[in-house]
């Protein structure tokens, strides 16, 4: 799994790619969310478009990020969830918690609403 970070305005876009299959590398994702809050960035857009495989451990990290950012007064939103990942969000009912988008600009605009 690879992690890429990019600031667009006051929103941090975190892009994951490859397999999200558990293990110590997931701690790196948690660290990204915590680091954002430490730097007064509380609006994060998580791009999952290049994630080729994900299980519950990935969902756990996303929920952790949601909690971290919400406590800081911000939010975590999801971009480009694949069909399979979207299915996991539905199964676990996390779809009721997260705002999901397929268009980056629309997602970025949503933070200002």
């Amino acid at each position: 799994m690879k992690i890429k970070e990019e600031m667009k305005g006051d929103v941090l876009i975190v892009s994951l790619s490859g397999k999200v299959i558990g293990g110590p590398e997931l701690m790196d994702v948690k660290t990204v969310f915590q680091s954002a809050v430490n730097h007064d960035v509380s609006k994060v857009l998580l791009d999952l478009g290049k994630v080729t495989w994900m299980d519950s451990s990935g969902l756990g990290v996303i929920v952790s990020g949601h909690t971290t950012l919400s406590r800081a007064g911000g939010s975590l939103r999801i971009l480009n969830a694949t069909k399979k990942i979207h299915e996991l969000f539905i199964i676990t009912k996390l779809i009721t918690i997260f705002e999901t988008y397929n268009d980056e600009q629309e997602a970025l605009n949503s933070f200002g609403e």
Partner: peptide, 16 residues
């Protein structure tokens, strides 16, 4: 998948 545990960071494996 129910109630307050919806935001648990773990425990979704069997459900999935």
């Amino acid at each position: 998948g129910e109630g307050e545990e919806l935001l648990s960071c773990r425990g979704r494996g069997v459900l999935i």
